[in-house]
């Protein structure tokens, strides 16, 4: 329990909370970026340097920007309208989320005795990760490459299609 952990956890959770509750969609996206950055810092605190930087590069640099773009491209339909931003079934959703958290929290707290104590700092270099990716995890790597290519092509096709006569 270090102070850094508490601060980063609070930052992440506050960002996440703001991302799902704020009214303005762009503010939601920016709060999401804060949550992602906080998570990246948590990864760094867990000695996972490579994953932390990847998190910033992919999430803050790409996913947050994608979300922002999507928000701006779908504007005009339902913003500025008065009324709630929450769904009709928000009570059920909140209940389910609370139940899930209660279950997870109960499971964690129940097994807290059996949880491992901190081992020594693992000395993992980028070279280790590269070697592992190219030997032990080469099949998942190739599958992810295929998936990313398919997603790229798919996303372009989905977003490119226009109604007849729109051109």
């Amino acid at each position: 329990m270090s102070i850094a952990f508490v601060v980063l956890a609070l930052l992440t959770l506050a960002g996440a909370m703001a991302a799902v509750t704020l009214r303005n969609l762009v503010h939601c996206a920016l709060a999401l970026a804060v949550a992602f950055a906080g998570l990246a810092l948590l990864f760094l605190q867990l000695d996972a340097q490579f994953v932390g930087f990847t998190q910033i590069l992919v999430y803050v640099g790409a996913v947050a920007i994608l979300v922002v773009f999507a928000i701006l491209l779908t504007r005009g339909a339902d913003d500025g309208k008065a009324g709630t931003v929450f769904s009709r079934t928000w009570l059920a959703g909140l209940g389910i989320a609370a139940a899930v958290f209660a279950l997870l929290g109960w499971a964690v707290l129940r097994s807290v005795r059996g949880l491992a104590q901190a081992a020594g700092t693992p000395a993992v270099t980028v070279e280790n990760i590269g070697q592992a990716l190219m030997s032990r995890y080469v099949l998942p790597l190739e599958i992810v490459a295929l998936l990313l290519t398919a997603a790229l092509v798919g996303a372009v096709i989905v977003a490119m299609y226009e109604k007849e006569g729109a051109r």
Binding site: T84, F86, S87, G93, A97, L104
Partner: peptide
Amino acid sequence: FAIGLAGALTRR
């Protein structure tokens, strides 16, 4: 996870 789930289930 719970915050994300709540967001996914309650927002319009």
